[in-house]
Structure formats: structure tokens, C-alpha cells
Amino acid sequence: MSLKQPLLSLTGVNTYIGQSHILQGVDLIVPAGHVTALLGRNGAGKTTTLRSIMGLWRPRSGQIVFDGARLDGLPTHEIAARGLGYVPEHRAIFRDLSVFENLQIAERKRGDLDRALPKLHTLFPDLKRFESRAGRHLSGGQQQMLAIARAMVADNRLLLIDEPSEGLAPIIVGAIVEALKQLKGQMTVLLVEQNFRMAAALSDFYCVLDDGHTVRAGEMAELTSDAALTARLLGAG
């Protein structure tokens, strides 16, 4: 695929969970300033790829390079500090903290939140309305919005978002898509998404994993214009 300089690249990444060889040589390029969708069937290794990038699983071999520097082998908190915002699956907020505290805790420098808050409140107005509410008392959609917003508090250069639509009602998914669309062009995003229509609407590039391998990567337009190819790569299109 035709690429500007990649912000993040994975080369031949192998990750084991216990005895299981989950990632068997993943190659991935995330171009700066664009949204890249990581696609594939259940169990293809998408979430493990994100977790390997964050150092939550340590890759056994391969290289992960972010902005010219190796990430693999670093402890998770140092990886995050390089400017990676991670939105894990299952709406991973802190349930015992309020909405505001959930955002505050993501500050990396003093003033991060003051700077980010107006933008976050425009993107997700509910976060302003329920500022003092405990995370556990938010709806699923609000929790997801909070999880995304939390990754945007610090001055992150790359967002890793895992299955933002999972388990949410279609109308809520629509709201999240709208919010993420506003990020396009401003942020580099690596998006894992089962819902192909959502992924297609948001992404500029794609990468398909199957059984822990990269099987194909390219521009999203190539997939959306070729239904047969999409069906072949992703099963039911």
C-alpha cells in the first residue's frame, strides 16, 4: 500500500499466552494521521495485537517500533508514557471513580485535563452532564465514551481502540461513530472492530489478521468497493 511515514509498525511479532502461540508473525503498519482498522474473525489475534503493543503481553520475538523507537520489551507504563492511549475492550473504566476522576487520573502533565476538557465535552456532552457520577452508574454507551475520552486526556499521538461498539445498542454505536469521525484527520488511530460497516465508515487503511497472521493490508477503499474480497477475507461480509 502507498504509505506516508508510519507512526507505528509491527514486524514479525510473535506472542504466546502460556503455551498457546497466539500471534504468529503479525506485520502491521499504522500511518500517521490516519485511522487504520484491524480486522479479522473472532480469535484472529486482534486484541492480542493491541495488548502486545501495550506490553500487557510481552512478544517473544519481532519488533514494535513507535515513532522510530522500539517499544517491545518496555514495561507497560513506559509504553503509555511514549504517547499511546489505550481503550481496552469491555468499556474499561474505573467503576469506583467519578467521571471527572476517571479523566483526571489520565493526566500525564499538569494542565492536560484543562486543555482537553472543552474538546472532550464537545465530543461527548454526557461526560459533562454526569461529571460527578460514579463510573459504575453510567450506561454502557456512556462508559464507552468515557473510556475513549480518558485515552484522549493526555497528549497522546496514537489511540488504540478495542471494539468500541461491542455490546452497545445501534443508536449508541451511531453516536460513538459520529464522535470518532470528528477525530479523523486529527489523530492517528488503530481500531479493532468486529462491525465492518463501522470500521469501513471510520478507517482509511485496513489490516486483516487470521489465525495470528497478517493476511492482507491496504487502503480501506479497496475493501469497500470489492464485496467479494471483503467476504473472502472476513467471512460473512
Binding site: 489505550y86 474505573f94 471513580l97 483526571q104 487520573i105 493526566e107
Partner: peptide, 24 residues
């Protein structure tokens, strides 16, 4: 204090706290 909130975050999910960038 902010430290107290990080402690609560660690109690709830330490990996998550690390992924935000805290040396838990």
C-alpha cells in the same frame, strides 16, 4: 489526592492503571 485515586484504580484493575501510564 491524585495518588489516592491511582490507588483506587490499582485496586480495581492494575493492568488498566498501568496502561494509562502509571508505574503501579
Amino acid at each position: 489526592s491524585p495518588t489516592g485515586r491511582v490507588l483506587v484504580a490499582i485496586r480495581e484493575n492494575e493492568l488498566r492503571a498501568r496502561a494509562i501510564g502509571y508505574n503501579t
